[in-house]
Simulated assay, not measured.
Amino acid sequence: MNDEELSGRLREAAEAHRPDRARMLARIERGMAGGPAAGAVRPPRVVRPWLRVAGATAAVCGVLAAGAFAVTSAGDDARARGGRVASAPSATAKTPDSPAPDAPAAKTPLRPEDGPLWTGGVVDPNSNPYWAQSNVTLRTTEPLSALTVELRVAETGGVNSTGSWRSLPEPDFTVSVNESGGYLVYRWTLRPGRTVPAGTHTFAGQYNHAEGDRDATGDSVTAHAVRASGGKAAVGDRFGRAR
C-alpha cells in the first residue's frame, strides 16, 4: 500500500468517527470538581506541622473562651440573685488556729448593801509604814447557807502576805491566798453544810509593803452569799488610803 492509499483510508476513518460529547463533558466536570478519575489512586494525605500547631491553638482558644463564658454567665446569674461569685482562696490566706477570746467575766458591782447583806473595807489604824492589815466587815440580818469573801490588795510595791484571820469559826471556812492580775487575793469560802449566823463578822488580811505611806485606793472587797431562806446577794466596797 502506497502513501496515497494510507492517507485516503485514514481520512475515511476520521470522517466515519463520531465523538461521544456527553462522556467528554462528564470527564471535564469531574476534573474541575477535583474528584479523581475512575480507577485513579488517591495519594496519601500529608499533614503539615504548622497545620497541627494551628489546630491545637484553635482548640485551646476554644476551651478558654468557653471557660470565660461560663464564669461570666455565673457572675451575671449571681448578681441577678444579689449573691456573690465564690473565688478560689489565696495561697497566703490563713485560717485562725484559735477561736476568738472569751468575753470578760461580769464583775460584781461595788455596792455595799444588797438585801440582808452589807460589807465595808478599811485599813486597820494600827498599820505602819512597813506592814498593814485590811479589815473587812460583813453584816447579815439573815443566816447564810453559802458565802465567799474576797479581799484584793493591789501590788503597789513589796506587797506579800503575812497571814489572815476571821471572827467566825476557823473549821467552817477554807482559806486561800495567791497573786493574780496585779493583786494579792485573799479568799474565804464557807464549807458545804455550814451556816453563817445573822450578825456582824470580820475578815482580815495582813501583808508587808514597801516603806512609806501605801495608797490603798486600788484595794477592794466583794462578798457573794446565798440566804438560808433562799435567794442570793452580792456586795462590794473599796478601801481608802493606808499609812
Score class of each variant (00 low, 15 high):
P129Y: 11
N128W: 00
L151T: 05
A132S: 14
V123K: 10
G158P: 01
N135D: 15
T148W: 03
V123A: 15
T148S: 07
T156D: 09
G158H: 03
G163I: 01
T156M: 10
V149G: 00
G158L: 05
S167I: 03
S134Q: 15
P125H: 04
Y130G: 12
D124I: 04
N160S: 12
L151F: 02
A154I: 05
E150L: 04
R152F: 08
L151I: 10
S145L: 08
Y130N: 15
T141P: 06
L138W: 02
N135G: 06
L144G: 03
V159S: 05
E150K: 08
W165L: 09
E142A: 15
V123G: 14
N126K: 15
S167C: 05
S167A: 04
Q133P: 00
T137G: 05
Q133E: 14
L168C: 01
T148F: 01
P125I: 06
A154G: 09
T148H: 03
Y130V: 15
V122K: 14
S145N: 13
S167H: 05
T162P: 00
S161N: 10
E155S: 11
E142V: 10
S164V: 02
L138E: 00
A132L: 11
P129L: 11
E150G: 01
R166S: 07
W165V: 04
S164G: 07
P143E: 06
L147D: 02
G121F: 11
G121Y: 10
N135W: 08
V136E: 07
S134M: 13
S134G: 14
N128V: 13
V136H: 04
T162I: 08
G157Q: 03
E155A: 12
A146E: 09
E155H: 10
L147E: 03
R152I: 01
W165A: 10
L151V: 08
D124L: 09
S164Y: 08
V159H: 02
V153G: 03
